[in-house]
Design a protein around this nucleic acid. Structure first.
Lengths: 209, 209
DNA sequence: TTCTTTATGTTGCATTTGCAACACTTTACA
DNA sequence: TGTAAAGTGTTGCAAATGCAACATAAAGAA
């Protein structure tokens, strides 16, 4: 993923953040950061720690929509719906830098060196987000668990350019990502093995077709 | 949805497009515009007509991923995956204006009036896209057809601020959007009616809870 | 108008899937 | 190092769902 400060020298980043009136907050573990946040149209950069974006179902279920880690970027410009049932929980100690949208075009910033690069990075970052979402939607719209698994494996395989690959997340996380029952997914993977479509060894997968 | 040229006077738009080296193309009906396109990192604005973004399944199925109409914006910066199995088919005569990402920060454009407004519009547009995708993912990750339907209805109801509303798309399109079988969805809606959760009259819905 | 296409509503049936309840393994951490 | 927590693999079963095959209604085109 594009870093918001890619191609900007370290020493200029602080200046840029200052002109953008960015502010940095610290949180403990298991805090809902959205409940304390009175900002709209902002971008949040995770400097340290990790977060989960949770959807609170009407009958009490907590569905993990997304996991964020150090270096990731989120915010209502990027990664959350406006829905009230959403919370964003810190998984550990977290440091976050917030930038408001309106500051992104303030009169001072546009005369700053590296502003153009910053804008370009931001646009790329946003469009990468869209691409990621689209990839997930493409998987989620598949009718069967089998199709979801195979499409996911093919995607990873294509990215690596190899029929041997290791999935970058746990099977539990994969089941969440594909929105299928973990045990049903495990069963389907077993069938795929016995039918000779794939071989697996832990998270190492080989496509046999 | 944000228009890319919101708050920019008509007479300045042409100038802006010229400096952005935008080019406008015309297509007939049922043309795959992506197959003729040798551009990456671009934005396409639909001036006239409508398009379908199609995913060509490995066994010949054509799944509609998205429908675009006049005024919509797409492009690999916004709405398509890089996947090769994607095609984008015109549904009628279409006029499209293309802007390349690299032009968005060319030396001339950044000195132009309304450039800042254009950039701000673009960033808002992209983040709206992300929000839309997230909303769909939120629906798609629900386990049952019933949950998908109810969540969709609640969303529309919330937007309207009324328990009476009309769904803005056909049931056929809704089934595609939620990625469920149309007839199974119709069955589930029937159950929701007999169980007293909703009333319907064509596409007019009333939530009874 | 008439014809054709598209949308909608319905149902039986086979399949898929979620769910629950396990056992076992691996990882995290105090 | 030991213990708790998280991840993985398995299976029976009931429920949900896709699919096919209709009939009918509505919308659009000639």
């Amino acid at each position: 993923m594009t870093n918001l400060f890619e191609n900007i020298p370290e020493k200029n980043i602080d200046k840029l953040l200052h002109i953008l009136k960015a502010n940095t907050s610290h949180y403990g573990k298991n805090v809902d950061i959205l409940s304390n946040l009175n900002m709209t149209e902002y971008i949040a950069i995770i400097n340290e720690g990790s977060l989960s974006l949770i959807f609170n179902d009407y009958d009490g279920n907590k569905i993990v929509l997304e996991e964020f880690k150090k270096g990731d970027v989120f915010g209502d410009l990027i990664s959350t719906t406006k829905s009230q049932e959403i919370s964003c929980i810190t998984r550990e100690k977290v440091e976050i830098t917030y930038i408001e949208l309106k500051q992104i075009t303030n009169t001072e910033i546009i005369r700053t060196d590296f502003y153009i690069i910053f804008i370009k990075n931001l646009i790329k970052l946003l469009s990468e987000q869209v691409t990621n979402k689209n990839e997930r939607i493409e998987l989620l719209t598949k009718k069967t668990t089998r199709d979801k698994i195979l499409a996911y494996f093919q995607k990873i395989s294509q990215d690596k350019g190899n029929k041997n690959f290791t999935i970058p997340i746990s099977y539990t996380e994969l089941a969440n990502y594909l929105s299928v029952d973990r045990s049903a997914m495990a069963r389907e993977i077993k069938y795929l093995k016995t039918e000779g479509f794939i071989e697996t060894n832990g998270r190492k997968i080989t496509l046999l077709y």
